[in-house]
Structures are given as structure tokens and as C-alpha cells.
Design a protein around this nucleic acid. Sequence first.
DNA 1: CGAGCTTTTGAACGCAGTCAACAATTGTGG
DNA 2: CCACAATTGTTGACTGCGTTCAAAAGCTCG
Lengths: 247, 247
Amino acid sequence: MPHSPLIRMFNCSINLNASEEEAVRALPMRVKILGGKQDLVREHESPAQCCVVLEGYACTYRDMRDGQRQIVSFHVPGDMPDLHSLHLAEVHNSIGSIGPLTVGMINNSDLHRICREFPRVAAALWRLTLIDASIYKEWISNVGARDARTRAAHLFCEVHFRQASIGRVRDNAFDWPVTQIDLGNALGLSVVHVHRTLKNLREAGLIDYERGVLHIPDINALMEAGDFDAGYLHIRTASERAAMEAH
Amino acid sequence: MPHSPLIRMFNCSINLNASEEEAVRALPMRVKILGGKQDLVREHESPAQCCVVLEGYACTYRDMRDGQRQIVSFHVPGDMPDLHSLHLAEVHNSIGSIGPLTVGMINNSDLHRICREFPRVAAALWRLTLIDASIYKEWISNVGARDARTRAAHLFCEVHFRQASIGRVRDNAFDWPVTQIDLGNALGLSVVHVHRTLKNLREAGLIDYERGVLHIPDINALMEAGDFDAGYLHIRTASERAAMEAH
DNA sequence: CGAGCTTTTGAACGCAGTCAACAATTGTGG
DNA sequence: CCACAATTGTTGACTGCGTTCAAAAGCTCG
């Protein structure tokens, strides 16, 4: 069922009707499996295809001239991290895997076709890019205006809610193959300080992790610590989607 | 000619044909004039209209619980800072003026209509949101991974190129009503440090400003100082647009 | 079982923040 | 048009959060 994360993603926006769903399922998709730390897209390329994350974590990042790396977003199943290649000539960020990653590659031409044929599908993809932009804005606020502890707590909350929305949180825990180095690159902190910050959060009982699994005993406490409000993720419940459709 | 910044914006993406241009010009638009430091949109609203910047600077920002403010983007004429309201239920950032500002308000329903009727117009707006996302990603890198001096230089380069692309740079100078306080909120720096950083850039001969005008004697030197590559702005020259159309 | 990552810890340093005071500029009301 | 208020810009001294450097311990995987 390689298309199912894609279908679920669309259904978060528009509740696909039968013919739309059929068209999405018919999209030619090449499944690609990567190990940890491999690149899917490199800066300054002009890819002719888009990817959908099917399983695992991807991240969008940028390497600075001084060798630092800045991760600007993590991607979970259902995300399409490089939709910009549909309308922009050149990519200015790299996309890579964090831990084992499965993605589906879809040709831009096929996506353009389905967008022309099914305007609601186009709107759903547009909506997806708007949500991405919303997440980027929050990430700017996080990196620009919060101290290390709050910043880390906020990021964990974000990942928690995104994983929860696709049913990947069990017993308050989810997969977390992200190293402290990655985390430093995402939070704009040095590895040493990331470690101290995590230690702090762990000692406060806000998080707990072992062998690639992150456990959040009390999400409300972590949200408080992370100055977190999930609204910017624009996650819709089933009833909200139904209400939307009715209108 | 209140619609002309809008027309120019579209032409940066798709070279509007006659009927498309007519439709855009026919969009009902209410012109609104604001003084400095007024809000256009406040967090947690659900606006039924979008704005186009016609003249001056707007900014998207977020107020943190500790009273800090993070500006996540400046907007110049032709920008549509709140397109998210077209597809997302609630806004999670405020939009305000910086100095005197003229905007055009367009009803979401009218925009939805024109998008349905003219798919290329929809694509152009989608492209606009993709460029916004690209700018946000760069802003994250800027705030997360560069030191104060580089960060400030980078921001000045960005504004320079965006103003230049709409013909608002004359003699290497452009309007700059942004206070050091605003700049601090944008760069994630304290006012005191912004001042020290600007002094540094001024003494190095990289920038020069007086009474609301910023002068950049040597943009290449500033780009070097700011680790700046304009690609992420996706500004197209006329010939690039023509080539695009041909394809 | 050894090589290479990743995590952990301590110590010293430095960039940027905070505090405080004053100058310059802009705005406002009489 | 002037007097006064408010905002913005400027500067110095001190502080602190997070970085850098260095070294060792734990993992992971060929």
C-alpha cells in the first residue's frame, strides 16, 4: 500500500471523492529506500520529480559556508518536502534522510496533470505548502526568540503532534532516530549544549528516551515548558474536515 | 492604478494574457492606508480577505509569551502576506505596518473565483506562497546559524534585492523606515547589539543610512559579508520569464 | 574486536544580553 | 511656533547563556 500515506495526507485537507482517490492511487510512484544520512535532493538541483515520505524521517537543511548545517524542518510520513520543484526553477535546500527512510518519487509532470484535472487536489497541495510555510514561521520564532530549553521542548512537541496526527504515537512514545548532532543543527545549538539541555529536560521528567524512542510522559507539561500551541500545525480532526466539506 | 503592483507580481510568474489581466484588474480591491505600527491582521483571527502590499513595508510577526516579538518576514509592494487565509482556518501570526503603508484588501471569495476560472492565476499565487516558504527557510538559517554581523548584512541584501526587483532602488539606496527595535525583533538580537552591529557595518563602509533611507555603496561587498546568494528569492528576469513561457 | 560515531562531562572563553543613563529625534498639544 | 512628552538611538560596564576545546566513555557495525 505505498500510496496510503499520500491518500491520508490528501484526506486531511479535502476528503477525496471516489474519482479523485482513484486518480491519486493511479499516480506512478517509484518507491525508494534509503539508509541513514543520505541525500535525496541536493542544493542547486532542478529535480523533475517530487517525493512523499512514506516511512521514517527526512529533513530539509542547508549547509553554510563555514561548515555549519541548519536543519529547517523535519518531515514525517505523508509530507511532501519538495513541492517547490513544481513551480520553482531551482532548489535552494538539500533534503536528506535521518535514519532509515522510505519515500515515493512522483514525476512533476504527473502531478501537474492531476492538478489540472482535479482542482481540489491542486488546492490540497497548495494547502500543504501553506502549512509548511506556517511551520517555517514558527521555527523562525523558535530559533530566534526562545532559550535553549524552551526551544528544544517546543520542537519535541511539534514532532509529537505531527506523529500523533498520523497515528504513530503509542503509549506516549514515538520513533526518534535523530541524534544530538542533528538536534543541534535543527535548534541552532552546539552539540554540547544540546546534551546539557536534554539532560535538563530529562531530569525535570519532561522527556525520556532510549534506543531511538522518545517518550513524553506528560505532553501538557512539555507544551507548557515549550511555549507550545499546536494551532500553527493546522491539524484537522475528522469532524472538522466533515464540517469543512459541508460548507 | 492601485492594481499595478498586483499585475506586476503576477507577471513575475506567468506573463498574464489579456483575459487574465482583465480579470485581475477587475478584482474588487479596497485600498487601505495605515500609519506606522498598526496591525492589519491579528493572531487567531479568521480573515475573509487577503491583502496586497501597494506601498511601504509590512511585516509578519509573532508575540511570544515573555513579551518578545519575532518578526518573521518583511513585505514589499506586490507581496501578499496572508494568502494562507485562502486555505487555512485560522491565522497564527500578526501582520502589521512599519512606517506608512498602503494595502489593497481583496475578498477571499473573489480570489477563489478567479483561481477557479484561471488556473494559471492559481498557479502563480501558489508559486508566490512557495517563494515565501523559501524565504522563511533562509530566514531560519539566518537566525539559527549566522552571527550578528553576517545576519544583519544578509537581511539588508535580501531587502535590497526585493526592492530592486520592483524598481525601488535608486542610486544604490532605498526607503528604510525600519527602526533598530524592529531590526532587533527581526534578527533575534537586542536593540543594543543591533546598534553595535550596524555601527560595525557602517564603519566598514558596507551600509549607510539617514532619515529613513538605506544606502548600500557596494552590494557585492555586502553580499560577501552576509553570506548572501539571491537564488532563494526566485526573482526572474524578463528573459527568464519569456523562456519559461516558450516551454 | 577494533574503527568510527555519538554521548557525556568539565573548564575556559566570548558573543550577545541586561542594566543604566543620556542624547537625538519625532510627535503632540497648547 | 514653541514646550514638553515619547520614542528612538548611542554608549559603557557588567553579566550570563551558550560555544569552544579537550578528553573519555558508550554504542554500533563491519
